[in-house]
Write a protein that binds this DNA or RNA. Sequence first.
DNA 1: TCCAGTAACTAGAACGTTCTAGAGGCGCGA
DNA 2: TCGCGCCTCTAGAACGTTCTAGTTACTGGA
Lengths: 341, 341
Amino acid sequence: MPPTPAAPHGKRPTLADVAARAGVSTALVSIVMRDAKGAGAATRERVLQAAQEIGYRPDARARLLRSHRSHLLGVQFGLQHPFHSDLLEGIYAVAEPAGYQIALSAVAAGRGEQRATDALLADRCEALILLGPQAPAARLAELAAQLPVVSVARRLRGSAQGVEVVRTADDEGARQAVDHLVALGHRDIAHIDGGRAPGAADRRRGYRTAMSRHGLADRVRVLPGGLTEDDGAAGARALLDATPRPTAVLAFNDRSATGVLDTLLRARVPVPDEISVIGFDDSHLARLAHINLTTVGQDIPRLAELAVSRAIARLEGERIPDGEAVVAPHLVIRGTTAGPA
Amino acid sequence: MPPTPAAPHGKRPTLADVAARAGVSTALVSIVMRDAKGAGAATRERVLQAAQEIGYRPDARARLLRSHRSHLLGVQFGLQHPFHSDLLEGIYAVAEPAGYQIALSAVAAGRGEQRATDALLADRCEALILLGPQAPAARLAELAAQLPVVSVARRLRGSAQGVEVVRTADDEGARQAVDHLVALGHRDIAHIDGGRAPGAADRRRGYRTAMSRHGLADRVRVLPGGLTEDDGAAGARALLDATPRPTAVLAFNDRSATGVLDTLLRARVPVPDEISVIGFDDSHLARLAHINLTTVGQDIPRLAELAVSRAIARLEGERIPDGEAVVAPHLVIRGTTAGPA
DNA sequence: TCCAGTAACTAGAACGTTCTAGAGGCGCGA
DNA sequence: TCGCGCCTCTAGAACGTTCTAGTTACTGGA
């Protein structure tokens, strides 16, 4: 059933092979394969037939070499970040319909960001989309001098000229969480933060200002954390020892919140009866029936769409609105928040 | 500080630009850039200097187009599988030192395996490494007719001729888990399985035969499950209703085991005091201090190494040992197993 | 002194596409 | 009948690299 894939000379079949078999020129085969206009219906049919028979596939590299546009977007992502995986799903969904291909380059242990971006540049990407890049601003500026660069989820001050930024309004997300807890009647609300992680500073600030606005400046309590479950668990232990013990806690992200939940369960502190918990991200984790976490959702499809569309806009010479693209988060209320006992 | 990246004519600099600046031929520049022999030390220095000055980078696509080997391994992976991310880390670590580049292609919602492999073929990969492929065996055979294909973690019967298989001895892992529990004194040991997931059938079989070998055939209890936390949670609820209630349970994987743990905690059933729990994978999850899961570890670096080395061996015409490459798992004893009450 | 051998370098053809020009055929209005 | 435009198709150059087959210059052995 599968077409015999063997090319005449044992190598991968090329345009010329198809052309010979169909009795036309290579140029015409090229036209047919690209579905461009300039070929008659009958010939088109015959060429496709021939291509099918010898199992021809266009060579993407040769194609890109010749055409002066590559229509290739390079995406750098971290292998260990589920959040990046979710973004990638969104990026694929937007880029392919817009006629752009995606080239992936992973950041892994022993393969730093420099290696990752070098590979993308060598592949002739037209623009770079960097998910949560950690590289120094100077390096990003250097890249931005060569081609359009979009930083997703990492905020950059003026030091990285020319880099587009797409991110969530982290401070606003923290504010929504605090507002929700205050509306439920909480006053002693703690925050287990994200340390130096991207967005952590903004979430910390959002928490502080929201507390102040509710006249709770003296109840502010920021516990050092990070972005893993262990960080959350450690924060929760500190929380339990605190006096007065807070009745609610905002974690840096869902992973951290999961650690908090686990520690509270083990300590037989019922959630949300004695302590309410809020996460951040609305990851798959949070949605699971047995975790059922109230959390601040990031609008991942929107972030992905903005990242791609800004990259494309820069490539096609459209004028881009100045400044960062900031996406509003939204509170997702589930089962881990309730009024204080 | 960064070299002025502008090429003479505003486009990306090429070999010819470097050659002109250094006053040599393009062929010689090519030699220097590849670090091949055939250039004098002084000239070499001068060429490198010129390349540096105009910010030259080799064009990977043109390079691959010309050279008849591409030294490119295509890897297909699932965006939503942390296990695949871990494998990828290992694959990068092995492939790059061996002189092979990695091209990634993700399987995502709306981007099936066919699309993913098509992209890799268009990119002129020399071999394909598929992580947990779900495609029908016929499709894999069709690919294998065109180039070397390695299937990781998916077992294939004779129907997919020519496909290399690299996998963990799943039945053996299940056996180790049962042996451990029996040695602790357990007799009522249940298994929450993985349904139709890759490896699930083998683990189920390993559990059954191990139970039989210990004379516990009549205690065998397989509960339907899957590969997510929710599946584990559902299985655990079924477990609690069973009579006699099992004193130990082997989950399909760590995610499922996490769901089990959570349900047991909520039901105030202490682990491991009343019920012991074992997972499978030794994922990051299992290692977390507050989960501390006894689990069957897969040797991920070894799986990655075997996958890459088999692909390369096929490419370089070396003779490969017949049959699948099966890697032994190993039990990792942590805090969720103990003797029955 | 001559020739072989080697090291340094170059011209020009490939690789598999797309693109630019243009050739030929046909229909149609004047 | 001519002239024009349109459609289909083709020849050949181009893309940026590597490879093959030289050419030149220098060394050292007979």
